[in-house]
Nucleic acid binder design. Structure first.
Lengths: 333, 333
DNA sequence: CTGTTAGCGCATTCAG
DNA sequence: CTGAATGCGCTAACAG
């Protein structure tokens, strides 16, 4: 037979499934003798509890839905690691879904996740829309946003202070004497991209450097696009001495284009990235960047989420954790 | 109320759950009128099917368990992307688990995955042991091994030809005139590491270069360890002109150590990696490496697995797919 | 200490 | 075309 059930054990042991259940779950009210016998039989039969049945009964699936933009991006991969570790430590599994930054996919996977009755949701929202997130809220399914957040919706969230991060990076370049700083931005519907841009602008303002619209470009999250764009910009003979990028990932594409133009980093052009992915430090010209606590973001987010899932009291106000970013000075700027 | 059920709809519609079920699942034997009405009511109520209940009933969970060594490693991250994409296309979800290359964790997560009644398992085995894999086989749970395989167990598998890959890398270096080639190996219990070493040895033999035991080192999968090791080796004044590494990931650590010693790549020492991770091509000295079809490995593996899950006939013999690797020549060697 | 009853939500018989 | 009965595997309430 394919899967042993309580019934099977019950038959062999000559008792009912109730007793089996009690014995197997260490509940009281089972004589030590029968308990021993049951445990032995269960083991012999190779019994494996059916968590689907348990979940249906208990209304708890012990699994959380994780919705990320793209696991193959090292930033999200690191976040995912933090999530998996934390979840595993607290005996939860994770169902992982990719959105590829498409709202339709986000909607779709959230639907499935709800149908699979995950106990909670951990999401990096696409942010082109947010009706689907509202639906989750209305259903009162525990939810936390990671690395991105909405101004308009109150939810749990774990983010890094991206305005500060953008400010720190820009300020550093300014103090190094740069006045014409190119910012390769991420898509502005993403809160982190928007806020890093705010930080960039704030730094310019604070140091009385006029903002030039032409120096803000990009609006992409893809390395390949950043590379192509950078090639184009270099042909344009745009006037700048430093570049700040939305992410290290983008910085890699940008630096490749720069290298192909035989320009020297940081002498001809300084580069500051964002995220501090593992590779940033092992590049031949180690990348100056803003450290994002990726693993911690995933870990803390998961813990807050599970806390909410397991909390008896319903009306806790949203937990909002903001982690301070830190400028990591290396060689690229 | 927290979750709408067929009952709730049934009450409103004045029919039984049987009819509701039929209507919602597009089964025959429901009058168009009542079907319309039911659909409308369901929508109004915000009905979301309970897949836990469905799964319990149908004995199918539409989810597959994915066990990887470490998602934060870009190699596995790329594999995971292929898996997720393929699974999503065929309407499966994935429960993702990390083993961190520890057999005990592998055992543990496989147990949970079986309890959650995944329809199949996609595993990168730790290979320090394999009893747990055997248990899965005995239970006749559809299973596929990805990127690694056992000689002693017959299972579905998708791998790249690692012996060939190791051979190609080594042969290339030999043809470039190198005779003292250092190999920084992965842990030898991992089949891919063992086979790449075989390829290395085979190339040496074919070109009549004596194998020197001292030139095979490492046995690690961690970048940090490769870095530390390389620093030590450089102090030792070991005699070599080229390095072949088990993975690009290791190569990064190795190259960092080399750079710190002010040695030039590829002039002072040539470096060939393995995997062709996305970063390999954007390094200042783009890495010569062996291309592993990571995404494809994940995708094809998933498709084979789901084929088996959905196949009526039980006794199909194990599918074994071996993808040919390819040498990618760039600048580091 | 153990059993009986009942139900989590759903879909498949089998009747009508 | 629709309903009643049954069970997927498990556990909690209630009896004894």
């Amino acid at each position: 037979m394919s899967h042993i059930t309580l019934q099977d054990i019950a038959k062999k042991a000559g008792v009912t499934t109730t007793t089996i259940s009690r014995a197997l779950n260490n509940k009281p009210d089972v004589s030590p003798k029968t308990k021993d016998r049951i445990l032995r039989i269960a083991k012999n039969l190779g019994y494996t509890p059916n968590l689907l049945a348990k979940s249906l009964r208990s209304q708890k699936s012990k699994t959380i839905g994780v919705v990320l933009a793209d696991i193959s991006n090292p930033f999200f991969a690191a976040v995912a690691k933090g999530i998996e570790d934390a979840a595993h430590k607290r005996s939860y599994s994770i169902i992982l879904c990719n959105t590829d930054e498409e709202y339709e996919k986000e909607e779709e996977v959230l639907q499935v996740l709800v149908e699979k009755r995950v106990d909670g949701l951990l999401i990096t929202p696409v942010q082109k829309e947010y009706k689907d997130i509202l639906r989750i809220k209305e259903r009162r399914i525990p939810l936390i946003l990671v690395a991105r957040h909405f101004d308009t919706i109150e939810t749990n969230s774990v983010v890094s202070d991206d305005v500060l991060g953008g400010f720190l990076a820009t300020e550093y370049l300014i103090k190094k004497g740069h006045k014409r700083i190119l910012y390769i931005s991420g898509p502005l519907h993403i809160s982190s991209a928007l806020e890093r841009l705010k930080g960039y602008k704030r730094a310019l303002k604070e140091y009385k450097i006029p903002l030039k619209e032409k120096l803000v470009r990009g609006y992409t999250a893809k390395m390949g696009k950043a590379y192509t764009l950078m090639r184009r910009i270099l042909k344009e003979k745009l006037d700048f001495t430093a570049i700040f990028t939305f992410s290290d990932f983008l910085a890699l594409g940008v630096m490749k284009a720069i290298r192909e133009e035989k320009l020297k980093i940081p002498d001809d052009v300084a580069v500051v990235g964002y995220d501090d992915i593992e590779f940033a430090s092992v590049l031949e010209i180690p990348l100056t960047t803003v450290h994002m606590p990726k693993y911690r973001l995933g870990m803390e987010g998961t813990n807050i989420l599970i806390d909410e899932i397991e909390k008896k009291s319903t009306n806790r106000k949203p937990q909002k954790l903001t982690i301070k970013p830190e400028l990591i000075v290396r060689k690229s700027a």
